[in-house]
Design a binder for these strands. Structure first.
Lengths: 205, 205
DNA sequence: GTCTATACGCTGATAGAC
DNA sequence: GTCTATCAGCGTATAGAC
């Protein structure tokens, strides 16, 4: 009798991601994770050892696949307009559908990011370098202005992840749920045209 | 004998802002705050009652003055270019000089923002409405394109606060400290020109 | 008004039964 | 392999000395 490992472990991982994402490492408790997983709390310790080991497992699981959208869209084979549109849409969809994963990452960085330091200095840094090449190619083709790749990416990450991490602020200001089409439109408007109407003036006058 | 209230209370507030900002509400401990304030932990409880009361006091203290920069720069008396430049510079300076205050706010929102719900639905919402009028005036003058005010503000807040809240990620990717001039340049580039070079093409061809 | 000593609940972790 | 019962330590809060 009893719930077998194959069922228990993924269930714990899923609930842990949700609870760690909502409350952070310190704010989450093992009893809460166990209760949400419908398991005795000792089982969670049996499968993962310590709270921190569970946290690391959940975090690694979250990071894998974190960069897939960028690789898919920010490629020289696409036009800048097409690539940026696709990437922003994908990042915003992630913020909408996996808000807890985004919050988990935000909590970890706010705490200092010790557990993801290696990931940030190796995988993510190389990732940004690679995207920088694409951005340089797009600029060379005249599809975008020349940009500072890391700072450009910081802006995109900030704007898109904001909709997952700061959701309570957004719904409070809007007095209702976020309209992701408007969010997409605003971000793309900034990336593709800026807020200066000078181009329109130049063509209409 | 002993440290008087006039010295102790502001010192506790200051250290509490730093520690709550770094670790969040759950991650911070009263002993840590007391030790950082060089006071017996009982004194902190004597002056503020409970941990949550101290937290609320620190949070309110942080929120006052949070919106002053916007009122100063996002005004119809300025040009859009001048106003946006000043506002972005001010917000980035705040992220650099008061990172702990920014992180405190981020932690609070990540946790659901219960303690700032009234502030968000009254003060901040009215604030955005007011800015919306300025943005509409700027658009009417042809200084910016028409924008969706709240979503436009979300983008600005996201991009500027990112440099305070996600600092570990930034330094890891850059392999060094952030260059605030480049950050300013990137954000202003997006706001004022976008990344599309079409305007330049239109004028040079 | 300021500080020392202490109570007590909650949490992470484990020993050992089934 | 799964789960029940229990422990040890930390963290908030307070009673009471100075």
């Amino acid at each position: 009798m009893g719930i077998p490992r194959e069922i228990a472990v993924p269930r714990i991982m899923s609930e842990a991601e949700r609870i760690f994402g909502r409350h952070g490492f310190a704010g989450a408790s093992m009893v809460e994770i166990a209760r949400a997983s419908q398991l005795p709390k000792a089982n969670v310790h049996y499968y993962f050892g310590t709270k921190e080991a569970l946290y690391r497992a959940v975090l690694e699981n979250t990071l894998s696949g974190w960069l897939a959208d960028a690789r898919h869209w920010l490629s020289p084979h696409r036009t800048a307009s097409e690539g940026l549109r696709g990437y922003i849409a994908a990042k915003l969809a992630f913020s909408r559908d996996h808000a807890d994963a985004s919050k988990l990452f935000a909590h970890e960085i706010l705490r200092g990011g010790e557990h993801v330091h290696t990931y940030l200095t190796t995988t993510l840094r190389m990732h940004v370098d690679l995207i920088g090449e694409t951005l340089a190619i797009w600029a060379g083709r005249g599809e975008i202005r020349a940009v500072d790749p890391p700072y450009f990416m910081f802006s995109i990450w900030a704007m898109t992840q904001f909709y997952a991490d700061m959701n309570p602020q957004i719904t409070a200001v809007l007095n209702g749920e976020v309209d992701f089409d408007r969010a997409t439109g605003t971000i793309l408007g900034l990336l593709l045209h800026g807020e200066s109407p000078e181009r329109l003036d130049a063509t209409s006058k």
